[in-house]
Write a protein that binds this DNA or RNA. Structure first.
Lengths: 186, 186
DNA sequence: TTTAAATGAGCGAACGCTCACTTACCTTTG
DNA sequence: CAAAGGTAAGTGAGCGTTCGCTCATTTAAA
């Protein structure tokens, strides 16, 4: 209950609107109870953040084969991430909220341990097979994944900054993916 | 002084670390002085946000010709934005901080008024000349600009999530831009 | 003498957090 | 097999501090 309400509060009211006393009231427990499970407020957010991030990462690599073709592998990753969003929209928005806060740096450090290997192998394979242009990691990441996250962001806020309503669907995802694949193919 | 210190505080300590009393002390004025110029805390952040965003938008369209070729036009926009970052890194980071807070929605509403026309014409021209694939606005935006913002984000945090150090340079920018142009060309 | 700008003390409310205490359930005992 | 004791979980009042914000007053320029 504490977990769930904490996520809801951060998503709905932002990090500043989130407080321990208020969380206690929302979860129907005493403030003291929260401190049985979490060292302090920072620890609470850190634990929620790492737990969710780990599950996001694990899910995004589900049924992912580092030896698959680049187009197939990237598509699998995109769809996995999208599916995670559909199943856990609040968790994704929670991560979005804390991603730009000062809490996130440690969370990322906690995550990146097992991450590099899997992704490194996949990219290395793709380059060797001439399915992917050799690129600095940052360039590759910016082109391969940033568009997808932008789509999720549009979807989350329900509209674009021009005021247009927006809701994500398979056709839009795959259309964007095709453009990205075209950009990255030699 | 209030403006400058407010920006510094939000960038360095995040939105939660930012408070009126602390800002007053940092700026060397009384808390009451702040309320002469700003209605309340929300108004302060809103005014800073809109001011900066407006200057960012204006600068990104500097010397921009909606009738230029798509490749040239997009390059101009990218470079303008990059240049704004180099000149005003704190302001950009400030916007990043509040972009995911609950303050930003109104700011965006304030901005999007004059924005749609200029951009609309540019994109329309490019499609007519067959320099750009016709796309839903969200797909276009996600592919055309999200990679650039991701590069800025990497630069801002000084490293990627794999721990690698990263600093933005012209070669990286133009390399990424080339990939994006390739994706969007018919 | 007027007026706008700035001040510092301090308000009530909310903050993160603690502690002495109760509750509920399990184990050990005579 | 009830009584006693132990343990982990949870409580509510409330602490010291900081929050956003105000107001009677002072300062300085017009």
């Amino acid at each position: 209950m504490i977990r769930q309400k904490a996520i809801e509060m951060v998503v709905k009211q932002g990090l500043d609107g989130f407080g321990v006393n208020r969380l206690a009231k929302a979860a129907g427990v005493s403030p003291a109870t929260i401190y049985i499970y979490y060292k302090d407020k920072e620890d609470l957010i850190f634990q929620l953040g790492t737990d969710i991030s780990k599950r996001m990462l694990a899910d995004s690599l589900q049924d992912f084969d580092p030896d698959a073709s680049f187009a197939e592998g990237l598509k699998k990753q995109w769809l996995n991430r999208m599916q995670f969003y559909l199943k856990h929209p609040l968790e994704v928005q929670f991560i979005e909220q804390i991603r730009y806060s000062n809490y996130y740096e440690e969370i990322q450090a906690e995550l990146s341990k097992g991450f590099r290997e899997v992704m490194g192998k996949f990219v290395h394979n793709a380059i060797e097979r001439k399915e992917l242009i050799p690129l600095p990691f940052e360039v590759y990441w910016s082109v391969a994944y940033a568009p997808m996250y932008q789509l999720i962001k549009f979807h989350n806020q329900g509209k674009t900054f021009t005021g247009r309503k927006f809701s994500l669907n398979d056709k839009t995802i795959l259309q964007t993916l095709q453009l990205v694949l075209k950009a990255l193919k030699p």
